[in-house]
């Protein structure tokens, strides 16, 4: 007995989710960030972010199809983290790494925030 492990399965699944997002297929929530709108899949947001987990695990919010984030959240930082959720790649431009770190802290994505912090320290 044993199994055949398809080593690239996780990546293939995530790539398909990103294709669905880019075509707005089966997206079930719109996130409003300081005037910008992002379509996404709740399941991916909840799987990647402690903040969204706490929002959508609340039965009152489970059926929400749109939520607005605190105005202090930077749309560029959110965009970078949303792309990360769907690609596993974190876009790190020097000019945006602090915004990305602060947004990761807000979204309760501690491992990403720690990585940004280490990146910032390594640059100074």
């Amino acid at each position: 007995d044993g199994c055949i492990q398809f080593t690239r399965h996780a990546g293939d699944v995530l790539l398909n989710f990103n294709r669905l997002r880019s075509r707005n297929i089966l997206t079930d929530v719109t996130i409003q960030v300081d005037g910008q709108q992002f379509h996404a899949h709740k399941a991916i947001l909840v799987a990647c972010s402690g903040f969204f987990y706490s929002v959508f695990m609340d039965p009152e919010n489970a059926n929400l199809s749109a939520i607005s984030l605190d105005p202090k959240v930077d749309p560029k930082g959110f965009s970078i983290l949303l792309d990360f959720m769907y690609t596993s790649c974190l876009d790190l431009k020097d000019s945006l790494v602090l915004v990305t770190m602060n947004t990761a802290i807000y979204l309760q994505m501690e491992h990403v925030a720690d990585t940004c912090h280490r990146f910032i320290k390594s640059r100074h």
């Binding site: 199994c3 055949i4 492990q5 398909n16 294709r19 075509r23």
Partner: peptide, 21 residues
């Protein structure tokens, strides 16, 4: 599944959703 007679398949595992139809 690590270890117990695991055969690793490196190829694609599922269909690829196209960028557009």
């Amino acid at each position: 599944y690590e270890g117990v007679n695991t055969i690793k398949e490196m190829g694609r595992s599922i269909h690829e959703i196209p960028r557009q139809d």
